[in-house]
Computed example of a mutant assay.
Amino acid sequence: MKFENTEVYGFKRALKGMRNALESWHKNDTVEENGEVIIGENDLNLAQRLIKAGSEHRKFMRQIFVSVDITAPLYWWKEFDTYKVGTTANSTSTMHKLASTPITAECFEIDDYNSDLDYDGTKLGDVIDKHIEFLESMRVKYLETKDKAYWKELIRWLPSAWQQTRTVTMTYENLLAMCSKGQRRFHKLTEWSKSFIDWARTLPYAQELIFPDEVENI
């Protein structure tokens, strides 16, 4: 699983806007130095209090945006797709590009793959290798014959471990929900509990805004 081309934007406007309700703009102390946003003590204190107060009070979190290219298996994307509100994704096309390059083990999620796992007296790796050979043969047959029947079987039997890249845009509010203790932080899929959570922790002020429950006295 890969996270590439991460961009975060909207901090300054969001943190100024969070003060609109009480018109306390004179306390706004977030600055930008050399292209890096530095949240001031006043703003961080208010932001964390609003986060703790609930979603109706922390609307500023919906105005801090993250864009990232995520490469993940289809079984992970099926779970990510439950987050419809506030997220947008453009994906590479399996339908259009599946037959364009050879199908190998590297096309699938194999980070914690155990090829020696016993499968009715047969190594799992041997079963998977044969399935990949079958998929590649369907791909080659389709290219040779242009018969869509081969393409259909290729699509039909493609495992959910197939990796797909999507450019995703979401907000810090989305990330706060995804990374909460009740959602994905301790998920049994390591793609969530390790890969996604580890990436989220690299974002600016992630500890203070996305994982506030881990900060003392918040």
Rank of each mutant, 00 (worst) to 15 (best):
T101W: 02
G121R: 07
G86Y: 07
R185M: 10
D81K: 14
K59E: 10
R62W: 00
L135I: 13
K27L: 13
T169Y: 09
S193D: 01
R139Q: 03
M61A: 10
Q63Y: 06
E56A: 08
W192E: 10
E214Q: 12
M178Q: 15
L175T: 10
K188F: 14
K146P: 02
H26R: 12
D116T: 15
E144L: 06
S195E: 11
A200C: 12
I64H: 07
R58K: 10
R62T: 10
D198Q: 13
W199H: 15
I39W: 07
A53L: 09
Y172H: 03
Y205V: 09
L135S: 11
K59N: 02
R19D: 04
M18C: 03
E106C: 00
W192G: 01
M95W: 02
I39S: 07
N114V: 11
L154E: 11
T92P: 00
M170F: 10
C179A: 15
D198P: 02
S24N: 06
G121K: 05
K27V: 02
T30F: 00
R58D: 13
W162F: 15
I132L: 03
H96V: 00
T82S: 13
M170C: 14
P212M: 10
E144P: 01
L98H: 09
N45Q: 11
A21L: 07
E136W: 04
E79S: 06
K52V: 10
A161L: 12
L158M: 14
A21S: 08
F3N: 13
H96P: 00
E32P: 02
K12G: 00
T190A: 08
P73Y: 05
W76N: 05
H57P: 01
I132G: 04
T104D: 05
L22G: 04
A206P: 09
E23K: 12
Y119P: 01
S55T: 05
